Amino acid sequence: MGGAAEEAEKRRQRLGSIVTDSSNTTFCVYDSDIATGYGVGAFLFLLSGHSLLMGVTRCMCFGAPLAPGGSRAWSIIYFASSWITFAIAEACLIAGATKNAYHTKYRDMVYAGNWTCQSLRKGVFIAGAVFVVFTMILNVYFYMYYSKATSQAAKRISKTTPSVGMTGYA
């Protein structure tokens, strides 16, 4: 996932060339480029990986209850953090792919005499790759603490002795 985003950054459209056609119209032309495909691929891989994890854990909404304690608290923290970094990574990847596709597939009219053709801002795909890596790390920790909290809950439910000692007072 992160590798595709890094490759998209390497191959992003850097600069278009200014061309004048037969009707004396000046416009920017960008070469076809594979960065858009890499960006969309990274987006889809991250989406499918995150969806798989949320399906396995049932998004913490359905299934066995979590045992109270440290594992439950950490799994909730990593769950929330994972969603935040996931949203940022997806936004960077789709924005970079969209902007790059616009530059490689469409022409911009140039009306000024001294004009440079726009290019995709450097670092958009790298930011996406960094957040993809953060998301993957947080997902691993989330799953680790989630599975620990669910296994502790299963042990506590099967306990038959009372946890609070009762004494008789007359």
Rank of each mutant, 00 (worst) to 15 (best):
M1H: 02
G2V: 05
G3Y: 00
A5S: 05
R12Y: 01
R14K: 09
R14M: 08
T20A: 01
S22N: 10
S23T: 05
T26D: 02
C28P: 04
Y30N: 12
Y30S: 09
D31C: 00
D33F: 00
G37R: 01
Y38G: 08
G39C: 10
V40S: 10
G41Y: 07
G41V: 05
F43C: 11
F43L: 08
L46W: 00
L47M: 13
L47D: 04
S48E: 00
S51F: 11
L52G: 03
L53H: 02
L53R: 15
V56N: 00
R58E: 09
R58F: 03
C59H: 10
F62G: 05
L66F: 15
A67N: 09
A67D: 07
G70P: 11
G70D: 14
S71R: 12
S71W: 11
R72F: 14
A73G: 09
W74T: 06
W74A: 13
I77A: 15
Y78Q: 00
F79N: 11
A80H: 12
S81R: 02
I84N: 14
T85W: 06
F86E: 02
A87Y: 04
I88N: 03
I88V: 12
A89I: 07
I94P: 15
A95F: 06
A95D: 06
A95I: 11
G96P: 12
G96T: 04
A97N: 08
N100D: 15
A101P: 14
A101C: 09
T104A: 00
T104Q: 13
K105D: 14
Y106K: 13
M109V: 14
M109R: 06
Y111F: 15
A112P: 05
G113M: 06
W115P: 04
Q118L: 06
S119E: 02
S119H: 12
R121S: 09
K122D: 03
G123P: 04
F125D: 04
I126S: 12
A127M: 01
V130Q: 01
V133T: 04
M136R: 01
L138F: 10
Y146E: 00
K148Q: 14
T150P: 06
T150E: 06
S151G: 07
Q152F: 05
Q152W: 11
Q152V: 07
Q152H: 07
A153G: 04
A154F: 03
I157R: 15
K159F: 06
T160V: 13
T160Y: 08
T161F: 03
S163N: 12
S163P: 07
S163V: 01
V164C: 07
V164S: 02
G165F: 01
G168M: 08
G168R: 12
